[in-house]
C-alpha cells in the first residue's frame, strides 16, 4: 500500500482582469531556467515547474503516536482561466525501519518522498491528516502552500487589485493506493473555516494524475464557494434588483465562465468526478446558482425598462 498526502490552497489572482498568456510565464516562473507549461484548450491553464522543500518533522503514525518524518515535499502552482491561482504541496509517505536520519543526498535522490522512521500505520496517518482542523497542517504543508501562493501574488507583473473578495480555501487530501483495489472510492467533505477534505482509495495510479484531480476539485469547490458568497452579499429579494445586480457583477465578470469540471482529466479522475456529481452534486448547485444570477439580471433589466415616466427622467 502506498500513501500520498497533499494540500491545495486556492485564491483569486490579484490582478484586475484575466492574465494574458504572455505574462503568465513571468508570474508563475518560480524557478529560473525551468519552463512554465501552458495549455489553451478547453480552458486557459498554466502550471509552474515543480519545486521542493526539505522537511524533518513529527508525523502522526497511528492513534496518538508520532514518528519522525524526513524527506522532501513537492510543490507547484497553477493558474486556471488566467484568474484562479492554486498552490499544491504533495508527499508520498514511505515507512522505513530504523530510526536514523540519512545524509541529505539520500533524500534528494527521492524527491517528493518523506520517509517515516518507525512503525507507521498508513491509514491512521491519512486519517490524522484529514481530521486536523485548519489551524494545524501535516508536515507544514499549509505553510509551504502559503509561501508558494504569496510569492506569485506578490509578483510585479500583477496589478494587485483582487476582482472577487474571497478567503483562500484549503483542500487536504489523502490517497491510499493499493494494487488490489479495483475502481476508486472517494469521500469529499466540506468542513468549516474554508477547509475541505478528500479521501481517495484507489488502484494503481500516477501521483501527478491524483494531484491534477485534487487541484481540479479544489478549483471548482472554490468557484462554488465564491459564487455563493457573492450571491449572499447581493441580498437578493431584500435590495432593489438594480442594486443586487450591481453586487452580482464580479461573479458574471470573473467566475461564471470558469466552470468546467474534469476539463483536463482522464481515466480514474473522470470517474471520481462522476461520483461527486451525484453526491454532493457540485454541478447541480452551481447550475442552480448561475440560473439565479441570470434570473436576477433579466428581472432587473425588465424592471428598469418598465419604469414609470416620472422617475425615468433621472436616467436621461
Amino acid at each position: 500500500m502506498v500513501l500520498v498526502l497533499g494540500e491545495v490552497m486556492t485564491a483569486a489572482l490579484r490582478h484586475s482582469g484575466g492574465m494574458p498568456r504572455e505574462r503568465v510565464e513571468d508570474a508563475l516562473g518560480l524557478l529560473a531556467g525551468e519552463r512554465v507549461r501552458i495549455s489553451e484548450r478547453p480552458i486557459g491553464y498554466a502550471v509552474s515547474p515543480k519545486t521542493f522543500t526539505g522537511v524533518d518533522c513529527r508525523i502522526l503514525a497511528r492513534s496518538g503516536a508520532k514518528v519522525r518524518g524526513v524527506g522532501t515535499l513537492m510543490g507547484r502552482a497553477c493558474l486556471t482561466g488566467g484568474r484562479v491561482l492554486q498552490s499544491s504541496a504533495v508527499a508520498r509517505i514511505d515507512p522505513v525501519g530504523g530510526g536514523y536520519r540519512r545524509a541529505w543526498s539520500h533524500y534528494l535522490a527521492r524527491l517528493g518522498v518523506v520517509e517515516a522512521l518507525g512503525r507507521t500505520d498508513l491509514p491512521g496517518t491519512a486519517a490524522a491528516h484529514l481530521a486536523a482542523d485548519r489551524s494545524s497542517s501535516t508536515m507544514g504543508m499549509g505553510a509551504f502552500c502559503v509561501r508558494l501562493l504569496s510569492e506569485i501574488q506578490g509578483s510585479p507583473v500583477l496589478d494587485k487589485s483582487t476582482p472577487v473578495r474571497a478567503r483562500r480555501t484549503v483542500l487536504r487530501w489523502a490517497a491510499l493506493i493499493d494494487e488490489r483495489n479495483e475502481g476508486v472510492r472517494v469521500r469529499f467533505a466540506v468542513r468549516e473555516d474554508g477547509l475541505r477534505t478528500v479521501r481517495l482509495v484507489l488502484g494503481p495510479a500516477e501521483i501527478d494524475d491524483i494531484v491534477d484531480l485534487c487541484e481540479d476539485l479544489a478549483l471548482h469547490d472554490w468557484l462554488l464557494t465564491a459564487l455563493m458568497s457573492v450571491i449572499e452579499q447581493s441580498q437578493i429579494g431584500v435590495e432593489q434588483p438594480a442594486q443586487s445586480v450591481l453586487k452580482l457583477r464580479p461573479a458574471v465578470d470573473h467566475l461564471l465562465h470558469l466552470w468546467m469540471p474534469a476539463a483536463r482529466l482522464g481515466g480514474v479522475a473522470l470517474s471520481v468526478w462522476e461520483g461527486l456529481e451525484s453526491r454532493p452534486g457540485l454541478s447541480r448547485q452551481w447550475d442552480a446558482s448561475v440560473r439565479r444570477v441570470r434570473d436576477q439580471m433579466a428581472m432587473a433589466a425588465a424592471l428598469s425598462s418598465s419604469r414609470p415616466p416620472e422617475s425615468a427622467r433621472f436616467f436621461r
Binding site: A12, Q153, T162, R167, R168
Partner: peptide
C-alpha cells in the same frame, strides 16, 4: 507580515 497583509487584502475590503 507581508504574506499576511497580502492574504487579508484578498479577502477583506
Amino acid at each position: 507580515c507581508v504574506q499576511l497583509l497580502q492574504a487579508l487584502d484578498e479577502e477583506f475590503d
